[in-house]
Amino acid sequence: MEACNRVIVSRMQSPVELIPRLAAHLVAAGGKRIRPMLTIAAARMAGYRGERHINLAACVEFIHTATLLHDDVVDESQLRRGLASANAVFGNKASVLVGDFLFSRSFELMVEDGSLSVLAILSAASSTIAQGEVLQLVTQNDLATTEAQYLEVIRCKTAALFAAATRIGAVVAGRGREEEEALEAYGLNLGTAFQLVDDVLDYAAEQERLGKTVGDDFREGKVTLPVLLAYAAGDEEERAFWRRTIEDQDQREGDLEHAMRLMARHGALAETVRRAEAYGDRARAALAGFPDGAERQALAGIVEFCIDRVR
């Protein structure tokens, strides 16, 4: 990871001064670096002992960071990892354009790697993420959204990059399709569990612990699983509340707290956590065909880490 971080810092440099300044703001905000960690651990678990996975891990992080920059602009977010978001500090235009720069850097790293398989996996993930963000925009403020549509948003905007990050570990190690698909399944299930927990934290965590403003999803009218479950279980008065706050975006003082009470009444957050745990179990099961060791234990541990954020 130290080597990966060195690549990230060096590839964020540019003679255009604003780019490294904004990039340094992102680096200073920290972040768990889960996605590049997945690439490194998956490659080593699959038996790879070279260095290609270092640059590819940085590539994965650039794709993720670019999407964060764009998402914060779309969502008008003011906080990212507990600090002012890049768009709050530098403005929307700079955030979008530096996001484009980081996407371009990621493709430079893919091309330098020279593997068409890696290029196919990561470029497909990039387009899938963009589709997921558009799908989330389409379903926003719409309580007619089905659970299947919600899970498709998660698959595209979050789980696809987790899956790509782990699958390329098998590719650089020269493993067969079975191992590639096993690591892809691990990433998909882990990414789904990760996002489900994120959606719970928006209604259950303290701002200092979460690193973003609590209730952002509610204020933006995002239709997440806790909302869908509470809406489905509610009586007509409760459903009218959800329609007013989510669909009509008519939100008043105390509405977020009332939303949390309704979710508690119907067990919506607990059920979402239960489903996250089920996806976590599937992720761990996908590792069964690989030899036990430090890397496999680390990958299993990441599953626990992602879910423990809400416990």
Results as ranks from 00 to 15, higher is better:
A86H: 00
Y231G: 02
P15D: 09
V197S: 01
R243M: 07
E133C: 09
A164G: 13
A124T: 15
N141L: 00
D255I: 02
V134A: 15
E257H: 03
A125R: 00
L69Y: 01
V7K: 01
E220F: 13
R309P: 03
V7P: 00
D113T: 03
Y150V: 06
Y203P: 01
L18Q: 12
E76R: 15
Q78P: 07
V273E: 04
V73Q: 00
E208G: 06
F162D: 12
K157H: 13
L26K: 06
V74D: 01
A28S: 13
A57F: 02
S104P: 14
L183Q: 11
S106Y: 10
L38T: 13
A232L: 09
E180V: 11
N55V: 01
A173Y: 09
V197D: 00
T245V: 15
L151A: 07
E178M: 09
A88H: 13
D199N: 05
A240I: 13
A193N: 10
G289L: 08
V172M: 02
L119K: 12
V172R: 03
A148R: 12
L228V: 10
R265V: 13
M110R: 06
S77V: 07
V89M: 02
A124S: 15
N5Y: 02
I19Y: 05
D75S: 09
M12I: 08
D72I: 07
H25A: 05
A159T: 06
H53V: 12
T67A: 09
N141I: 00
L56T: 03
V223M: 02
H258E: 14
L190V: 11
G215Y: 08
R44N: 08
Q207R: 08
Y231D: 06
E133G: 12
T192K: 02
H25E: 10
Q251G: 00
K222R: 09
V89S: 03
E147S: 06
D292Y: 00
G176T: 14
F90D: 02
R309L: 03
R243E: 12
A165F: 11
G234P: 09
R167I: 13
A94F: 07
I40M: 15
A205K: 00
I246N: 00
A268D: 04
D216N: 14
I63D: 06
M12N: 09
R175P: 12
Y279I: 02
D100R: 09
L183N: 07
E236H: 03
G215T: 05
R282E: 13
S126E: 04
E253I: 08
R311C: 07
M263Q: 10
Q140H: 02
F62C: 06
E178V: 14
E112T: 14
A94K: 04
V310W: 00
A170R: 09
C4Y: 04
L151G: 08
M45F: 04
L190H: 08
D142S: 09
E112K: 10
